[in-house]
Amino acid sequence: CGKPFLSTLKPAGEVADKQYDLTVLSTLIMVVVVAVVSVIFFYVIVRFRRSRVGENTIPKQVEGNKFLEITWTVIPILLLIILVIPVVLYTLELADTSPMDKKGRKAEDALVVNVRANLYWWEFEYPDYGIITSQELIVPTDQRVYFNLKASDVKHSFWIPSVGGKLDTNTDNENKFFLTFDSKRSKEAGDMFFGKCAELCGPSHALMDFKVKTMSAKEFQGWTKEMKNYKSTAESDLAKQGEELFKEKNCLSCHAVEPNDKRAEAARTAPNLATFGERTKVAGVKEANKENVKAWLKDPDSIKPGNKMTGTYPKLSDSETNALYEYLKGLKAESK
């Protein structure tokens, strides 16, 4: 049950499948345990009630029973052995990130994405292609995608429920793992999965969502080319005015508008806005439309309490937000 783009019960890739299988196996074993306990439980509580046994009966005081006690020690051990073998195997298997460290690794064989979690937004860097995106992760299907995970401020946790379990983004070290996106089931989920932050990180922890777009390996190659040649020009007068404002109001000092942002990581303090016009959500949670973009520009705290943008720029008038919206809406790869 649940939605195919969000539920761990609708697994859509190798990792989620394995975890789902383990969940099912352990649930089955546990159902057996619960059933056995329940049967004995209901029998004893009904059969030995005082109104049936008699008010003054003194039951036999039994000390114990060796055979029974050994039985209910050994059987659980056996059940656990059944469970523990696949658990250990899968745990080791899911941690195999050796291809990403291989010398002469080709991006086509083992794609690596650097994920950086920040207070309420995500950055995805494709080091092989020199591309940076924010809030939307683009991945090819039917191959293992390797992730380097870290956080730039506080601890977060990277989780795409229907594609695989989570791994924390620590402030101390980089964590590595891989996920696989199955093409058929990605299609069923609309080629779009929901990603979440799974570690409490502050007021807007609940709103720290991201989106995952899946496409075939071929389409993905096309996308990387598109991004490399990314160029976006403001067309209308209003958009041009917005572009001016974007510089004037110092938005550029934090937000890049090209996917090949060359600045050092520490300087990239806000989401990259290249392809903003193609995104489905504003701030990861709100429908991408004029009203919401303007609401965000007016008061980001009304949408994401505790975000780092509030108070870093001068107040914007209505006409200024209109112009900025027009400009931001037009941030698309030229070919689209």
């Binding site: 761990t8 989620a16 394995k18 975890q19 789902y20 383990l22 969940t23 352990s26 649930t27 074993i29 546990m30 345990v33 619960v34 306990v37 329940s38 439980f41 656990l80 469970l83 658990v87 899968y90 745990t91 298997e93 899911l94 946790s157 429920p161 695989g164 379990g165 989570k166 791994l167 799974a198 570690e199």
Partner: peptide, 25 residues
């Protein structure tokens, strides 16, 4: 007894590390 058993069995499920990546948090 039955309430705790339900909590106990989910504890074993959570102990299954690879699956716990899904359950955790």
């Amino acid at each position: 007894i039955p309430s705790f058993v339900l909590g106990g069995v989910t504890g074993v499920m959570l102990a299954a590390a690879a699956a716990d990546y899904q359950f955790h948090d």
